[in-house]
Amino acid sequence: MHQLGEQLSVQVTGGPTALIDYGGLRFLTDPTFDEPGHYGRPDGKPGLTKTAPASVTPADLGRIDAVLLSHDEHPDNLDHSGRKLLTDVPLTLTTPSGAGRLGGTAKGLENWETVELDRPGGGVVTVTASPALHGPEGSEKVTGDVVGFVLTGQGLPTVYVSGDNASLDVVRQVADRFGPVDTAVLFAGAPRLKPVFDGALLVLDSALAAEATRILGARTVVPVHIDSWGHFTEGRDDLVAAFTEAGLADRLRLG
């Protein structure tokens, strides 16, 4: 658990999943709680292999006010247990296409659209949908729509949750609107699948995550999406090395 202020803490549970306590509300990113195993694809395209379990179970989490779901189409962002969890939460914020597939309490947000959630004791948290690009330019037709999120509120720090984004141009758009941010929850891990875009990055690698930190002016960075899956090609040590080389190691918060 990273206690990042009186009104903010982040608990990383494995893969892309983190529990964010923010202004009295509890947000969960991309829920993945299945046991390790392989996820094949009926179309014969490369599947994904989970290599390690989450550090907690859904039952350990307690109350969840909203899920921040970058996208629903890949099992390393929403697995079977995660889908089951969605049926028990009051709100899932995601892409418009994802909300159409999920139904239930899912709400789709267009880029820069906002939702206000009431805080216990008064006031609101504003969730703003930010763009994300899951691969190289033009990858949307293959990897699908993805969304990130920015959390703001009166007297609260600004928190950016990148989702599965590989584009620094997207990060610059967020920085132009919201920077400097207090905390960035950056999806990293340099995932690659050789048959997909000739092995191009699907999400930030460690060096790009460090550059994203600089662009955002982020005071602290909590990396997620850096472990537990076989197609992630970089992990904790790579992040530390990249942030150290960039002179930003003091901003990293690693669980």
Results as ranks from 00 to 15, higher is better:
Pro131Lys: 10
Thr126Glu: 03
Pro136Phe: 13
Val125His: 03
Glu113Asp: 04
Val127Leu: 11
Leu109Cys: 00
Val124Leu: 05
Leu117Ile: 13
Gly135Asn: 12
Arg119Gln: 08
Leu117Val: 06
Trp112Pro: 05
Gly135Asp: 09
Val127Arg: 08
Val127Gln: 00
Ser130Ala: 15
Thr114Lys: 07
Thr114Val: 02
Lys107Asp: 00
Lys107Gly: 03
Leu133Gly: 09
Gly123Glu: 06
Glu137Lys: 15
Gly135Cys: 12
Thr126Ser: 02
Lys107Asn: 01
Ala99Pro: 11
His134Leu: 12
Thr105Glu: 01
Glu110Phe: 03
Asn111Ala: 11
Gly121Leu: 02
Val127Glu: 04
Lys107Glu: 01
Glu110Arg: 14
Arg101Phe: 04
Gly108Asp: 05
Leu133Ala: 03
Pro136Met: 09
Val115His: 03
Ser130Gly: 14
Gly123Cys: 11
Ser97Trp: 04
Gly98Tyr: 09
Pro120Ile: 09
Val124Cys: 01
Thr105Phe: 07
Leu133Ser: 14
Leu102Cys: 04
Gly98His: 12
Ser130Pro: 14
Thr126Tyr: 01
Thr114Gln: 05
Asn111Gly: 00
Arg119Lys: 08
Arg101Leu: 14
Ala129Pro: 06
Ala99Phe: 01
Ser97Asn: 14
Ser97His: 12
Glu137Phe: 15
Gly98Trp: 10
Thr126Arg: 15
Lys107His: 12
Ser130Cys: 15
Glu116Asn: 12
Leu109Lys: 07
Leu109Glu: 00
Glu113Cys: 07
Thr126Gly: 06
Leu133Glu: 11
Ser130Phe: 10
Pro131Gly: 09
Gly108Gln: 08
Gly108Ala: 10
Pro96Arg: 02
Asn111Asp: 10
Trp112Ser: 07
Asn111Tyr: 03
Pro120Gly: 05
Lys107Phe: 02
Ala99Lys: 04
Val115Lys: 13
Val124Ser: 07
Arg101Asp: 05
Gly135His: 12
Gly121Glu: 01
Thr114Asp: 01
Ser97Phe: 14
Gly98Val: 12
Ser97Tyr: 04
Arg101Asn: 08
Val127His: 08
Gly122Leu: 02
Ser97Thr: 15
Val125Tyr: 01
Val124Gln: 01
Thr114Phe: 00
Ala106Asn: 09
Ala132Leu: 04
Thr105Ala: 10
Trp112Gly: 02
Val124Phe: 03
Gly103Trp: 13
Ala132Lys: 11
Gly104Pro: 07
Pro96Thr: 02
Gly103Pro: 13
Gly135Arg: 14
Leu117Phe: 10
Ala99Arg: 13
Glu137Val: 15
Thr114Pro: 02
Gly135Ala: 13
Glu110Asn: 07
Gly100Cys: 00
Ala129Gly: 11
Thr114Leu: 00
Gly100Gln: 03
Leu109Trp: 04
Gly100Pro: 06
Gly108Thr: 05
Thr128Val: 15
Glu110Lys: 05
Leu109Tyr: 10
Ser130Glu: 12
Ala132Asp: 05
Pro120Asn: 04
Glu113His: 07
Pro96Gln: 06
Asn111Trp: 05
Gly121Thr: 11
Glu116Cys: 02
Thr128Ile: 15
Gly100Met: 12
Gly103Thr: 10
Leu117Pro: 11
Trp112Asp: 00
Gly98Ser: 13
Gly108Ser: 04
Ala99Gly: 01
Leu133Arg: 15
Gly135Gln: 11
Pro131His: 08
Ala106Gln: 05
Gly121Lys: 03
Pro136Lys: 13
Ala132Val: 13
Gly103Cys: 10
Arg101Ser: 08
Gly98Glu: 09
Thr105Leu: 00
Arg119Ile: 12
His134Met: 15
Lys107Leu: 14
Gly100Asn: 00
